[in-house]
Design a binder for these strands. Structure first.
Lengths: 345, 345
DNA sequence: CTGTTAGCGCGTTCAC
DNA sequence: GTGAACGCGCTAACAG
């Protein structure tokens, strides 16, 4: 089979203990011996067996990340952030996709627990956290991502969607819009409902109206259908500012409005999206959007994980809630300093 | 620490061997004993230690996938395909991101090799495959993804970019276009150069001209700039069909053409993209594009991996080259049966 | 059918 | 600064 420390020891003419020390505590070994052993390692192509190492250590140096969908740009960035933070601590992040499937999620959690990962970052599907509670009780630190833990039994990192909704709608108010619209749905998704709540708060008592349109989903075609419905109304019933609950929806709306002969963005209708996915800055009319600090979320989650690890006796988790940020672009404010477009793909 | 088979054995009043058999060979154990042991496992919250299991087995049940960028929709789908195929064989896929960074790639490969993964799927950055050759020589099966192995020493799964380029350009010829344009770059990327080669082959000898514009990159802004350059020409110098080397570039072109007052798509200018990313079907004018069978690529890669595993003595790898597929939409053919839009995000 | 036991490859004692 | 021996948790082989 593959070469082991014993083979290396034999070739270098030393004992296995010395080989181990060369790898893990080079300071404790004479320089000449170190070189001899390293040469043997290279020559034999020795790769240490992590299973054996873990078995001895009792823990691995990887952390598991279970997300709903890797293709979602938000989670992709969270993963990136987590990866960077983990690397700083000598850890590696292993991704897995739950695909919004509870069985898959369960399976992956077991898998990671069997691997005795140093910690688990989870954006859970189910509202029922009992499985995850058990894992945590058994000693694997868990941090919830993009979701708060009601009973504070876990640490969590999330974003304030009410604040994000407020920012978006408030921006429309500030640029002088009077008849605004919130578009998004389904309202059963807590994040969406929160964004609406924020929007209502921003318009309340300002004399600005807020028409609420609940959509079936948050896709481009849905946005396009909505925009067509709006254009079919008499012009006096048009909103003058639309807050779409995510960027895809906003793109759909924009596509239709851009080619309509008698509408201009943002003069007639201003448009705000949510998520700030990379396409936002690349749209024909660059889209004002609410940006979630996804990289930071990932990094913070890792940090909480490590903290939990050191300080197991901490009775309750820390709930970190980030504030989103409004990124103003042409769809609400035409005259501005040109930003350098992001080169994503 | 965590509960072990010994604890379970004690609680169930049996020996560790029996516990192991209950987990791995339930048929060999009396029904009553099985139930007793399972109850103990549940009661104690026993989770088997995979490190120990692997140490014994010599191999893990996961396969490693190293891609250039998870956020790239193409790789995201390859990953999905690999995941599904792996699941069918009781394996799990662990992703990691090389981020187009050679050091990171090297690091990840070592990590996976230390884990003694059952196999490795890699879309390598460097043209130098010597590192990967070493890994393969040491016994970990490797399959190259989206890249052919020149010397046939590995198995690989890739897509025929020449054929894809041919399809795209040939489609423009078939719908009666006479002055076509290829846009894309840099040509140092082999995939792009191949697409151009195919496009040339399709136009050659047909009387249709092919103007080649090498772009700096494949982004939306680059496409927009190109479209503006075209519009600034006298109309007689406009191309009547454009083949963009990827969808993002095509979107940029489309955005500008759509709002230009004196151009209509596809009558004046038809547009073909490449990759068929999910946004393609959602564009204002849905985009004709060349689709790579990304799911299938991932699945096939896993299959080759398993085959290599069984049949180590096979001297050379199998090179599987898939043919892409042209998906015709409104940007080249306005009147067609309406397709149901994809609901991605 | 069940119990006992020997390693898998490594890191970590301790003696030297 | 070095080497020999033990054990992490599990599985497989064999003995009962």
């Amino acid at each position: 089979m593959s070469v082991s420390v014993r083979d290396v020891a034999k070739k270098a003419g030393v004992s296995v203990g010395t080989v181990s020390n060369v790898i893990n505590n080079p300071d404790k070994v004479a320089q000449a011996t170190v070189l001899k052993v390293q040469a043997a390692i290279k020559g034999l192509g020795f790769i240490r067996n992590d299973a054996a190492r873990q078995l001895r250590a009792g823990k691995s140096r990887s952390i598991g990340l279970v997300v709903l969908a890797v293709q979602n740009p938000f989670f992709a960035e969270v993963a990136r952030g987590a990866e960077e933070a983990a690397t700083d601590h000598g850890l590696t992040v292993l991704f897995a996709n739950s695909d919004e499937n509870e069985d898959r999620e369960r399976h992956l959690l077991v898998l990671f627990e069997e691997q005795r990962v140093a910690g688990l970052l989870v954006s859970p599907i189910a509202s029922d956290l009992s499985e995850i509670t058990k894992i945590s009780d058994r000693g694997t630190p868990v941090v919830l991502v993009d979701r708060e833990s009601k009973d504070k039994s876990f640490s969590s990192v999330s974003v304030d969607n009410v604040a994000g909704g407020f920012m978006a709608a408030n921006h429309l108010v500030e640029i002088g819009k009077k008849k605004t619209m919130f578009a998004g749905g389904p309202m059963s998704i807590k994040q969406i409902a929160d964004r609406l709540k924020g929007a209502k708060r921003a318009t309340q008592g300002t004399g600005v109206t807020l028409e609420v349109v609940e959509t079936k989903n948050l896709t481009v075609p849905e946005g396009r259908a909505l925009a067509e419905e709006i254009l079919s109304r008499p012009k006096k019933l048009w909103p003058d500012g639309i807050f779409a609950a995510n960027d895809l929806l906003a793109f759909g709306i924009m596509q239709v409005l851009v080619v309509a002969p008698n509408v201009s963005i943002p003069e007639d209708i201003a448009l705000v999206g949510y998520d700030d996915i990379s396409y936002s800055s690349n749209a024909l009319i660059s889209l004002t959007s609410v940006r979630q600090p996804s990289l930071t979320i990932g990094a913070k989650a890792v940090e909480l994980l490590l903290r939990a690890d050191q300080n197991i006796n901490e009775p309750v988790g820390r709930q970190v809630v980030f504030q989103p940020e409004l990124v103003v672009r042409d769809s609400t404010l035409p005259k501005r300093i040109e930003l350098i477009p992001l080169d994503h793909y």
